[in-house]
Design a binder for these strands. Structure first.
Length: 471
RNA sequence: GCUCCCAUCGUCUAGCUCGGUCAGGACAUCGGGUUUUCAUCCCGGUAACAGGGGUUCAAAUCCCCUUGGGAGUACCA
């Protein structure tokens, strides 16, 4: 049997990393089993779905290098098919027309909630006589089609969760086709998955309870039931659902920040899935395909760990030849700073210094900030107080004197100056370099000190020192 | 409310099927080495079985309860 999986996003916004992971798992699973991966656009929510979002979604997928094997299917193009199957269920008395209006429905729901009962549809329209139905239809009363639920427990084997047992009474007679002729999610997935011969449904856990509904639909329609695999959700670092207030949540945002396709792909793959080889988290797509399966997917939710993504993405950045990185980095710098303060040679050096160890490309902006902001905007370094004491300040002051006297400042000059000052004051190693670095650049981390100082130039150095001494 | 799912270092997790491990790895963090500083790199350390009951010679592992987190209960997906 050929394995067929699908990714079925609804184009209601930009692609969330959770969705991206679902796509990755499905794609990996299909590729691992030499099967097919299919894309289906679930745009039955007319209010929120847009073509623009759909295009963005496809763009994100392409960026992640996730390819699909057949022409993508759009659910809004298939309303006839859903209606046909729904009508078939009506004919078989497994579903019925419902003429209840929104107002009636919501007042009933409120009443049930007030009585602390589950707000399920009361089934009133299922008891309508043939004649009443006929009359309503003739009068053109809008109707939806509801499924007549046979209340019974549903047990199924989930590839990730194991045996799942859903008790009867979880839902009432639910809607299959809305009064606007659009199918409801739980119905269209079943019809489509069955018609598209999907063998493995890999999706997020929020659909776990829905699965019971879907299984009874498969049975009512006479379709074979596919395998299900429900992945736990991706959470923010505080344990709540990953949302906008936690920072970047969409693939697009990560892409724009300069995360690499391979880096994000790799990270998302190992978020909730463990590669078989201990200690090896960095895996190529080929290896990912080779190893991925549902048996090592975790049951419990995973927190999105930005520091691990940063590490992993940094590993991928290291592999890229600098020549490829250069134009991207340069344009990032150009977008944020006035580059003409420096000549070509200096820009090249700054670029090289800033690009030493990036976790994501736009980090270059922060890395080279020192060279472009004015000294008075430098903020107080965290460890300043620790160093703002003798004998370190004496060293800084001597350095200040020498620099202000100097005519030409270059790397050689700073090299000998530091050496001499070290001898003079008996400072070496960290005790020599740190005070200078801290007071003259305002940072405790940074590239090679002599180069930084040379690039900064006399004026800036003196001003930064004055500034730091005043903190 | 009801139903379902989940629970091992700060984080992602291995181990659980088939009880016996100094509870392993990666990221982060801390310390050491290299770099006269920073980053890189190398070496090393700290750090976890949610709680309570059972079963057993022996429980992270099997059973029950509690607690905590999440999802569903829609003419959203």
């Amino acid at each position: 049997m050929e394995v067929r999986t699908r990714f079925a996003p609804s184009p209601t916004g930009s692609m969330h990393v959770g969705n991206a992971r679902t796509a990755i798992f499905n794609w990996l699973f299909a590729r691992h089993h030499n099967g097919k991966f299919i894309l289906r656009i679930e745009d039955t929510d007319l209010e929120r779905s847009t073509r623009e979002n759909e295009e963005k979604l496809i763009e994100d997928l392409k960026w992640l290098k996730i390819d699909w094997d057949e022409e993508p299917v759009r659910q809004s193009d298939r309303t006839k098919i859903y209606e046909e199957y729904a009508l078939r269920l009506v004919k078989e008395k497994k579903a019925f027309f419902c003429f209840c209006t929104d107002e009636v429905l919501s007042s009933k729901r409120e009443k049930m909630m007030a009585e602390k009962k589950a707000p399920h549809y009361d089934g009133s329209c299922s008891r309508l006589s043939d004649q009443e139905i006929e009359e309503n239809l003739k009068k053109g009363v809008p109707y939806s089609i509801r499924f007549k639920v046979d209340q019974k427990d549903i047990i199924f084997q989930d590839l990730i969760k194991g045996e799942v047992n859903i008790k009867a009474g979880m839902f009432g007679d639910f809607v299959l086709i809305r009064s606007n002729k659009m199918p409801v999610y739980n119905f269209s997935v079943v019809v489509d998955d069955a018609l598209m011969k999907i063998t493995h449904v890999i999706r997020a856990e929020e659909h776990l309870s829905n699965t019971a509904r879907q299984i009874i639909l498969y049975q009512a329609l006479g379709f074979p039931v596919p395998f299900f695999a429900h992945t736990a959700l991706i959470l923010a670092d505080d344990g709540s659902k990953l949302s906008k207030r936690h920072g970047a949540t969409s693939v697009e945002e990560y892409r724009k920040k300069g995360y690499l396709s391979d880096g994000l792909f790799n990270y998302l793959s190992i978020l909730g899935w463990t590669p078989p080889e201990e200690g090896k988290d960095k895996l190529s797509r080929k290896e990912l395909i080779q190893f991925f399966d549902t048996d090592r997917v975790a049951k419990s939710p995973a927190k999105f760990d930005l520091s691990k993504l940063n590490w992993l993405n940094g590993e991928y950045i290291k592999e890229i030849p600098f020549e490829e990185l250069r134009p991207v980095l340069l344009s990032l710098m150009g977008q944020n700073y006035d580059l003409f303060f420096y000549n070509q040679d200096e820009i090249e050096k700054i670029l090289l210094l800033g690009a030493r160890s990036l976790s994501y490309l736009s980090q270059i902006i922060k890395e080279v900030e020192l060279f472009f902001i004015s000294p008075e905007n430098i903020s107080k370094p965290l460890s300043l107080d620790e160093w703002k004491q003798e004998p370190h300040t004496a060293l800084v002051k001597r350095f200040y004197e020498e620099v202000s006297k100097a005519e030409t400042l270059n790397e050689e000059f700073f090299g000998t100056l530091l050496k001499n000052l070290g001898k003079e004051l008996g400072a070496k190693g960290k005790n020599l370099f740190m005070p200078i670095r801290l007071f003259a650049t305002g940072q405790e981390h940074g590239p090679d000190l002599n180069t930084v100082l040379t690039l900064l130039g006399k004026n800036k150095i003196l001003k930064i020192i004055e500034q730091c001494l005043s903190f």
